[in-house]
Design a protein around this nucleic acid. Structure first.
Lengths: 145, 145
DNA sequence: TTTTTTGCAAAAGGTTTGCAACACG
DNA sequence: CGTGTTGCAAACCTTTTGCAAAAAA
């Protein structure tokens, strides 16, 4: 695919990528764009579907997500589903997932930051703790009926 | 494989399985046994390897783990690795995982039970919360050098 | 005896990789 | 320009499934 230097070379996504030490390419900017359009956990496949018109390869989406994760732009979310879900790191929060239907509800605030420091003390073999993942599982009201 | 009613029909594993509403078969008892021999998060493949001498099919290990999880005997642990890790439910705890080398350290106590009630209140669409998963990610001392 | 579970083999699904062409810096 | 990234296709690996035989209750 031939690229022309376009709008994607400027703006917030460009800055985020460069800030993470990544080259700002059209596919990467597009992938990042999907997250800010729709801020919830997403899989590579879902992102690929939303970018069909951009003709970005699925493998490229996978590779983008991996490099985003390595540079801290996105985080992996553990929904106990078949695929890997990612979310932008800049609005950290937790989720509740229904074990029957898979419904995902987002929790408003992360209340464990206080506990975090205490936990950090109890860790023997680690130098830094850089992130955490806290998810709750249960049965949603619909499935409980 | 022909079975004979043997030792696996009695004892604690048998009770755990029946308590979970599951039939106590030789393969299931064996899988459960692996967990108590070595109490850390394990994948189907790892369990399969430890039971090679028992000639249990890998598919059976997968099916056992799935039914254990559904009946609450084991829980899925999220290590951000390629496969699904399981642990016995009866010693609930959290982990710290090194993002470089994959080292897993277990944390002693779960300190968020207090927050749990508060969290439960803030959840709109759920009737019950049955479990949670909290993992920390960072860089271990070895990798930090 | 009825129902569930197993073993086997094959399929499915998600993710990764090799390589040549291409684009970013 | 040089190096890192993309597209394409193929490979890979984990997990699931269909079915007939076997075991649990």
């Amino acid at each position: 695919m031939k690229y022309e230097r376009g709008d994607y070379m400027k703006g917030k996504f460009y800055d985020i990528l460069r800030g993470g030490g990544l080259k700002a390419t059209k596919p990467r900017v597009a992938v990042l764009g999907v997250f800010s359009d729709d801020c919830r956990p997403m899989t590579a496949e879902e992102i690929f579907q939303k970018l069909l018109h951009e003709k970005i390869d699925l493998a490229t989406v996978y590779r983008s997500l991996k490099s985003f994760e390595e540079s801290g732009i996105v985080e992996i979310v553990n929904l106990h589903k078949d695929s890997i879900y990612y979310e932008l790191s800049d609005h950290h929060h937790h989720h509740v997932i229904c074990k029957k239907c898979g419904l995902v509800e987002r929790l408003k605030e992360c209340d464990i930051d206080a506990s975090l420091k205490q936990i950090q003390k109890s860790v023997r073999n680690f130098k830094h703790i850089t992130s955490h993942s806290l998810e709750f599982f249960g049965i949603c009201k619909k499935c409980a009926d």
